[in-house]
């Protein structure tokens, strides 16, 4: 463990203006996440976990409060600066996969590398390696509609991995998959964590959250509970 936390949030508040009503989605969140942690964020719908995920993923900024990523304050950066942070530091895995429908698996995985100017030969090679890592080395030229749901999510994981991000941020990654396939996907996350990747999992399903080593429970925009999952191989 290092002195510096990978993620440190302080007094995070997020207020949305919906017409004339104000929605107070986050009401003062504080926590730290260390490198190589495997954290699940849980909570019922409306608890603010999507909002929190968006802020951690640098898709959104807090109304007030601080967010330090790798020691750098990213809570008030511009949109383009956030885009670069996302590109360098964060790999997203979404419930709905969010793959480009007309692009091959390889091209989908290349995407983050395209936007940071990686030369085309290098990015093809890295994308291929990432696809092999998730067991899709033989399907790199398939398009999303030629792949099963589990395979699509593997492509999305490969895309999240390809730029060697600090954090892999998975938002209900098994939500659109059957239980067996969902379990397979979770195995991949477990393996990635064993290899040293920091994983943050947003879910409302307890048995999915059990894969993590630490669970942060949210309710009404606040942390209700922050506990270590009891397992034989403890990290934190």
């Amino acid at each position: 463990m290092q002195d510096q936390a990978l993620i440190k949030v302080e007094k995070l508040h997020k207020i949305y203006q919906l017409g004339k009503t104000q929605v107070h989605a986050l009401r003062g969140i504080d926590f730290e996440i260390q490198p190589k942690e495997y954290v699940a964020i849980m909570g019922p719908s409306g608890s603010g976990k999507s909002t929190l995920m968006n802020i951690i993923g640098c898709l959104d900024v807090p109304t007030t409060g601080k967010y330090y990523l790798n020691g750098k304050d990213v809570s008030q950066l511009s949109e383009d600066e956030l885009a670069q942070i996302r590109n360098q530091n964060i790999g997203f895995v979404f419930q709905t996969f969010n793959l480009l429908p007309r692009a091959s698996a390889l091209h989908n995985v290349e995407l983050p590398l395209i936007y940071n100017g990686t030369p085309s030969r290098e990015r093809r090679e890295r994308a291929r390696i990432a696809l092999e890592k998730v067991g899709l080395g033989d399907r790199i030229h398939h398009k999303p509609n030629e792949l099963s749901g589990g395979q699509r999510q593997r492509v999305a994981i490969a895309r999240a991995l390809v730029n060697n991000p600090n954090i892999i941020l998975a938002d209900e990654p098994t939500g659109n998959l059957d239980t067996v396939t969902g379990e397979e996907i979770m195995q991949i996350f477990d393996e990635l964590n064993r290899q040293g990747n920091t994983i943050i999992l947003v879910t409302h399903e307890f048995f999915i959250a059990q894969h993590a080593h630490r669970i942060i429970y949210l309710r009404d925009g606040k942390i209700e509970k922050d506990e270590i999952v009891q397992k034989e191989t403890e990290e934190v």
Binding site: L59, N98, Y115
Partner: peptide
């Protein structure tokens, strides 16, 4: 729109 969202999520800037 969704494709734009995906591209922006993985790091495309406005200019791109």
């Amino acid at each position: 729109t969704r494709e734009i969202g995906i591209r922006k999520a993985v790091g495309a800037t406005r200019r791109q």
